[in-house]
Write a protein that binds this DNA or RNA. Structure first.
Length: 813
RNA sequence: GCCCGGGUAGCCGAAUUGGUCCAGGCAGCGCGCUUAAAACGCGUGACCCCACGGGGUGUGCGGGUUCGAAUCCCGUCCCGGGCACCA
């Protein structure tokens, strides 16, 4: 303890030992009267060792957890690992090492480093999604969804990643490429497992209003769900005597529909016309990659089908086409085309010489087409002259009365494709039986354990298919020979419910106890990267709602409040191995200590923003922490222990209370860790500045000691080891057991304030005056200012604006 | 193309409600301590002009509203993110 200089590693090890020995951060599920607070970082994917993003997310989360504890909350702050997934499996393919081995080695390293960082985790609830004790319940939950019709198997055109050799969810395809592999995704017709997330589209949309999330994430979810209101309108085709409903958001433009288009995948295209030309067009469209087909600047191609459809509003026969700009997955796979008021239809019509008929005028006489704005209707029979917004509802109503249409809503959101043809994932607990069809594995036979295999290489089917002993089972329903489902689940399934498991992590009778879950959920503060704005956050919300409907839990939203941290960059660029600009948390902690590494990352800028890493910057924080340590040691050696500050308040005491106030609002309300830390730096700077004069009197010394202890208390959420050390040194108590300090309002006010005098809005003078001075007196002072007089130049003061406590602005003419 | 953010000192950033622009850190410069260096401490720290008292200009750019604008409005440029043939 008699160290001469700040030695972070020694201090940090000492406190980490205390916390581990005493299981300080474990929390019981017993209600003790305190309000609960569930603080959670998005669970890490264990691969290699933790990177700077992990350091940041836990620095933010831990600061919040500590703050909550010290402001009277019973805090749940657990951690686990998202352990299934492709990188471990790809590593296995390369090296032959079992994914379990590489994953668990990585988990051990993550755990070691998280402990090195001194993160206040309840380790008694630690879990890995690859452990049978966890995925047993993933399977159990899957079966509940299956029973309730929310998990189903369907033959569909799906996204196939040719590099990973597996299907991908819609959400995992970015710009037509696989999210991980970057390979162009192909469309394949395959039978796959889906979750019926589309049933929840409206609730997922509406309930966004009930949660406190960053606006951009809410917007991204809204756009992803993509709710469009409009109408379903039926077009009749005489050639096949078939009705073809189409979805439109613009029923008001129905009179301008001059042709009709079907997607190449539409089952009736070849029935309408099986000429070689049409067949060839369809074949080509189906084999093209999503990217080629999706490119917006792509020319609008298509082939006439030689048939017509009847426009229900006017009985017109309009030509039918097949064109790949119409998608089978959205709406009904067929559209009415209104070239005058839709850009895509306009382009197609221009290219194929189809009539373009304007049915909405522009109010300002703009005659350019296509026109997507509003205005009065023309060439629309009895709706002529009406404003198109009014006509909208009337046309839909009229269609309804004629049985030719109805109001309709469509979503961009697709069902969640969850099956993967890969090894390292949670097995789907289903047996395929020739007699019984799909038979769920009974609950008491769970988990369906992932078998060990020799060859992890994907071959267009799951590697599990080769494990014949495992695959061949008796049907759980009829006992006849049957086969297990060999696909595994998307890892996003594992991570869509882990936050519930933490609440009751060691329950071996159920995934959780409903009452225990109700006592912790929802997560009060969720922290993670914005890259999960859609996938993980949407899936987790869907699971929560689905389980609530099934009666397994009582909340509608899993994450009441979300904080998305910005990316730490270096030299303005994202850190990446290929750029060679990666900062390793391990090296930082070894060199400067965890407290400095954590504090610096919270100090570079607001944690929600990015922040550019500066190697010298962390040295500055390290210097500050050392200065605080020395100030504390100095106070301990040169002042007497006391119950608190005595004597007339000095600048240092006021500064201490100012810092308490500042850190409390910055951390508690704004997550502004950077300005909170700056406030503690200011406090310590003030202490060093006045050290000698303060130590000259017993009263001053007591204030110096109080300021040092306060600095330790305030820095604790960011630098927990040093905070504990300083506080114990000066008070003999444990800072985490102490309530969060409260600022004395009387000490936040100062006797004198500086008033700024402006002339026509420009600062010309400053006065120090007594606080609480009357407005009239202030104005008088301003008018009497010499500097104002010097600058008047014969002009006259015509008006004075007094902002109490701040400034006086004199207006001169 | 559409929808969000953002642009303040050499760099990261502060300014929370329209009221003193630039807190805090980094880099730089000067000084102290030291035989010396490191460490530490103190000071300085936008630009232009200056008679050394001070004066003028400054928040991407151009306008506007206001007694007063980094903050609000209009236009424009640049950077970052999301969506993108969704009818």
């Amino acid at each position: 303890m008699a160290a001469e200089s700040y030695e972070p590693r020694a201090i940090e090890r000492r406190w980490q030992q205390v916390w581990a020995d005493e299981r300080t951060w474990e929390v019981s599920n017993e209600d003790d009267g305190r309000p609960k607070s569930y603080v959670l970082e998005m669970l890490p994917y264990p691969s290699g060792e933790p990177h700077i993003g992990h350091l940041k997310v836990y620095s933010v989360g831990d600061a919040i957890a500590h703050f909550k504890r010290r402001t009277g909350h019973r805090v749940l702050h657990p951690l686990g690992y998202d352990a299934f997934g492709l990188p471990a499996e790809n590593h296995a393919i390369k090296t032959g090492q079992h994914p379990r081995e590489s994953t668990e080695a990585s988990i051990a390293e993550f755990r070691r480093q998280f402990n090195d960082w001194g993160v206040s985790i309840d380790w008694s609830r630690e879990l890995g999604t690859h452990e049978p004790s966890y995925y047993r319940w993933t399977q159990w939950l899957f079966l509940r969804l299956f029973e309730n019709g929310l998990a189903y198997r369907k033959d569909a055109a799906v996204n196939w990643d040719p590099v990973e050799e597996t299907v991908l969810a819609n959400e995992q395809v970015i710009d037509g490429r696989g999210e991980r592999s970057g390979a162009l995704v192909e469309k394949r017709q395959l039978e796959q497992w889906f979750f019926k997330i589309t049933d929840y589209a409206d609730r997922l949309l509406d309930d966004l209003d009930t949660i406190d999330w960053p606006q951009n994430v809410v917007t991204m979810q809204r756009n992803w769900i993509g709710r469009s209101e409009g109408a379903q309108v039926v077009f009749h085709c005489d050639a096949l005597d078939a009705d073809y409903p189409v979805f439109t958001t613009r029923p008001d433009t129905l009179f301008g529909a001059t042709f009709f288009v079907m997607a190449p995948e539409h089952p009736d295209v070849l029935k309408l016309n099986d000429s070689p030309e049409v067949a060839e067009y369809v074949r080509r469209a189906l084999t093209e990659s999503a990217e080629e087909r999706g490119a917006e600047d792509r020319e609008k191609t298509g082939v006439a089908l030689g048939t017509t459809a009847t426009n229900p509003v006017n009985g017109e026969q309009i030509p039918m086409y097949v064109a790949d700009y119409v998608l089978m997955e959205y709406g009904t796979g067929a559209i009415m085309a209104v070239p005058a008021h839709d850009e895509r239809d306009f382009e197609f019509a221009t290219k194929h010489g189809i009539e373009i008929r304007r049915v909405i005028e522009s109010p300002d006489g703009d005659d350019e087409l296509p026109y997507s704005g509003d205005g009065p209707m023309v060439a629309s029979g009895r709706f002529d002259g009406l404003h198109n917004r009014e006509a909208f509802a009337q046309i839909v109503e009229w269609l309804g009365s004629e049985g030719k249409g109805e109001p309709a809503i469509n979503y961009r959101l697709r069902d969640w494709l969850l099956s993967r043809q890969r090894y390292w994932g949670c097995p789907i607990p289903i047996v395929h039986c020739e007699q019984c069809g799909m038979a769920p594995v009974p609950d008491d036979q769970l988990p369906v354990v992932l078998p060990d295999i020799e060859d992890y290489k994907p071959k267009g089917r799951s590697p599990l298919a080769a494990a014949e002993e495992w695959v061949n089972v008796d049907c759980p329903k009829c006992g006849a020979p049957a086969k297990r489902e060999t696909d595994t689940m998307d890892t996003f399934v594992d991570s869509s419910w882990y936050f519930m498991r933490y609440c009751d992590a060691r329950n071996d009778q159920a995934p959780w106890d409903r009452d225990v879950l109700a006592s912790w959920m929802p997560v009060d503060q969720y922290i993670g990267g914005v890259e999960h704005a859609i996938l993980h956050l949407m899936y987790a919300r869907f699971f929560t709602k689905a389980f609530a409907d099934i009666g397994l839990l009582d909340v509608q939203e899993p994450f009441a409040r979300l904080f998305t941290q910005g990316m730490v960059t270096r030299d303005g660029a994202k850190m990446s191995k290929s750029k060679g600009n990666v900062v390793s948390p391990r090296e930082l902690v070894d060199e400067f200590g965890a407290d400095a590494a954590r504090s610096y990352i919270l100090y570079v800028g607001h944690p929600a923003e990015g922040g550019d890493w500066n190697d010298k910057g962390i040295e500055g924080i390290h210097r500050f922490l050392a200065r605080l340590w020395r100030a504390a040691a100095d106070a301990a050696a040169n002042t007497e222990p006391s119950d608190g500050p005595t004597g007339e308040p000095t600048a240092v005491l006021r500064k201490a209370h100012w810092a308490i106030d500042k850190v409390t609002t910055d951390l508690g309300e704004r997550f502004a860790t950077h300005t909170a830390i700056a406030a503690v730096i200011e406090l310590v700077n003030e202490m060093t500045k006045h050290r000698d004069e303060l130590l000259a009197t017993p009263e001053g010394a007591s204030q110096y000691r109080f300021a040092a202890a306060t600095a330790g208390s305030l820095i604790f959420p960011f630098a927990p080891h040093l905070g504990s050390e300083v506080y114990e040194l000066l008070t003999g108590r444990r800072v985490w057991e102490e309530p969060w300090p409260e600022a004395d309002p009387a000490l936040l006010e100062t006797d004198t304030i500086t008033i700024v005098i402006q002339l026509n809005g420009k600062v010309v003078d400053r006065f120090d005056v007594a606080a609480g001075i009357a407005d009239e007196e202030l104005e008088g002072l301003a008018r009497a200012s010499e500097k104002v007089g010097d600058r008047l130049d014969g002009r006259e003061i015509v008006k004075a604006i007094v902002v109490p406590g701040r400034l006086v602005n004199l207006v001169a003419k």
